[in-house]
Write a protein that binds this DNA or RNA. Structure first.
Lengths: 207, 207
DNA sequence: CGACAACTTGAGACGCTTCAAAAAGGGTGG
DNA sequence: CCACCCTTTTTGAAGCGTCTCAAGTTGTCG
């Protein structure tokens, strides 16, 4: 792991703050070892405002392999907001964006079956990973997650994750091989994930 | 429901942006009606940056009873960041805080049993509700949630929620009556929730 | 070639879900 | 004040999805 001072981070629209050379995950654990991955971070992603980071060791970030990243202090964050409001605005936006990832995952974990959760995760990760790929992922995208990561991300047991993964693979929906993920029947995956059909207006719309 | 222009919102350290006269919830639904409440909003809470609000009706906010609130546009948000960086900073902080609520809930839904989830929710909601109470909730706190709300918040079925709730109540851990929540054996509830014991440092600490 | 991590598979147990239906509240109009 | 309706709560019973336990296989790296 390499730690790069903020002022040296070279990247993208918002170079100052974050990024990896590889994947990582935010997670929480219970005292008996049960572990829940909150969301995955891909190269180029923003590490959320980790204010609660130090509060307890309950909340962590784990690298799935070597990463390089930038960290910043709360004070520095405030200074930045004052000095460069537009970047501060971007940070707010990015924080909100990260939350939306967690929101999506909570919907999965709370209300989708194992098959549906896995289909959802594969599609979403593929999409994110394909963005930085040359041809949009025609020959798959890099996929460094172990089945244990997937299980912890979806609130499933390792065993059941494996069986479900194999079932979908045997049905020809996807393939994971050599550290790469291939979607072979995107339509079926999307159908399983119910990614479009979201709906139902709020009974009492507020906004 | 009353809609108050932002510049008139009277409240707290950060009067401009949010708040209710009552409770509400953020949720998502699947096309077949399955519903997951992401987090609950209590009086005084901030409504997150609802950028994705309009993206699809998949994401909603429901009032549990009449509420009054402030809304703001994305542009207004940007203008605010520029004009008042300190408030912009607070917004970032609040957005991150709301995310931490969702994180906590995701840990519950993904890795806690039904009993543990309910214990966790009761304690956390009680704490939040007690803050604004005169005596810190010695005679309970207002509790407008139905069991369906609790079920949707915890990723459980209504039936199982009811049975678990009754089991805990019969064991003397809590009481819900007349729209109020009373914690009767906080210690036992905390033990169930594993709220302190969080632990386990990251295998590969990043920060 | 030995060691360790990741993956795979089978089998039994249990927690939670679904279905079904009744009881208890809460509000409204006659 | 009662009759009615609709929402919320409660309880029983059966089914199944997921978990745990157990062990074997495959892959990787030194």
């Amino acid at each position: 792991m390499t730690d790069i001072p903020c002022n040296q981070c070279p990247l993208r629209a918002l170079p100052l703050f974050t990024l990896f050379s590889c994947w990582a995950s935010r997670f929480k654990t219970l005292s008996d070892g049960r572990r829940q991955i909150l969301n995955f971070l891909l190269p180029g992603d923003f590490i959320g405002v980790q204010q609660k980071m130090t509060e307890a060791s309950a909340h962590g970030v784990e690298a799935l392999s070597d990463v390089s990243l930038c960290t910043f202090q709360r004070d520095a964050l405030w200074a930045l907001h004052r000095a460069a409001p537009s970047i501060g605005f971007d940070i707010t936006w990015l924080a909100a964006h990260e939350e939306s990832l967690v929101d999506d995952n909570l919907l999965s974990v709370g209300r989708r079956s194992a098959e549906e959760r896995i289909a959802t995760l594969l599609i979403l990760l593929f999409k994110r990973a394909a963005v930085v790929m040359p041809q949009g992922g025609v020959d798959g995208v890099p996929f460094p997650l172990t089945q244990q990561h997937i299980a912890d991300g979806l609130g499933l047991s390792l065993v059941h994750t494996n069986k479900t993964l194999r079932k979908l693979e045997r049905r020809g929906l996807h393939r994971i091989e050599g550290g790469r993920l291939y979607l072979r029947d995107t339509r079926a995956l999307v159908r399983l994930a119910d990614l479009y059909g979201d709906g139902k207006p709020s009974p009492r719309p507020l906004i």
